[in-house]
Amino acid sequence: MRQLMTKWRPYLTVFRLRALQETQYRAAALGGLVTQVFFGLVYIFLYTALYAGSDPQALRDTITYVWIQQMFFRMMFSNDGELTNLIMSGGVAYMLVRPIDQHRFWVCREVGGRLVGAGMRMLPMLLVQLLLPVELRISLPDSPVALLQFVLSVGLGVLCLCELTSIIDAINMKTLDRRGISAILNLTMLTFSGNVIPLTLFPDGLQTLVRYQPFAQALDASIRMYQHAAALPEWALNVGVQIAWILILRAIGRAMWARQLNNMIVQGG
């Protein structure tokens, strides 16, 4: 146990420091808050017009979906400038003089930044809800169990995202330019994570495919639990899919990092 603590201590510390650092960026959080509320309202007005005269419950669900997506926007889309700079400048090679697992170190750092960044935008956005007319507000979770399932699932979602980010970082190490891969990935992410159109609104025939692809594990899976408390077998399946993707992305990410760091070592950064 004690050995395990010592082993994990540097990674927990970098998580904590990154989280603390994120709390310093209050102006950015305020800016994010304003943007996300604006986008949330735009989408909601759009869906209100679209659903006019049809199923009111479907509209309520869509509004809730949109709000949760906006609240966690920072968790979904952000990048760690420090690592990008280190990669571009070649400084990342010099990090190798530290006796740490580089991949684990940067993933933990990323988790800290994303969680706190999202939290700093989400909490004020919950307060903003109180200022809105009832029909535009986020709905309460299906049940306390649903809320619990949601929170746990968001935790898995952030891990999934950070493992995905580490893959992008590895590609970045190869190409030394983040722009290309970011452009492709941002569009894919926006679409397949449900940020532009809720994944629940994709055609029925595609639902199975859409639900179990990796981008849906970031947040869509969690929102579904928020809106509909799952019975044990279904819950186990959903969480199982999230964990499976984390493990798959992690294996790919680690292999790519090992290869890139090794190349760096051979080539000399």
Binding site: P10, L12, V14, L17, Q21, E82, R98, P99, I100
Partner: peptide, 20 residues
């Protein structure tokens, strides 16, 4: 080149090194 962390107080970098 720098091996400390750019954006955090240097005391925090030293703290992280303690754990590393």
């Amino acid at each position: 080149r720098t091996q400390l962390w750019w954006d955090v107080p240097i005391r925090d970098s030293f703290l992280l090194l303690r754990d590393i």
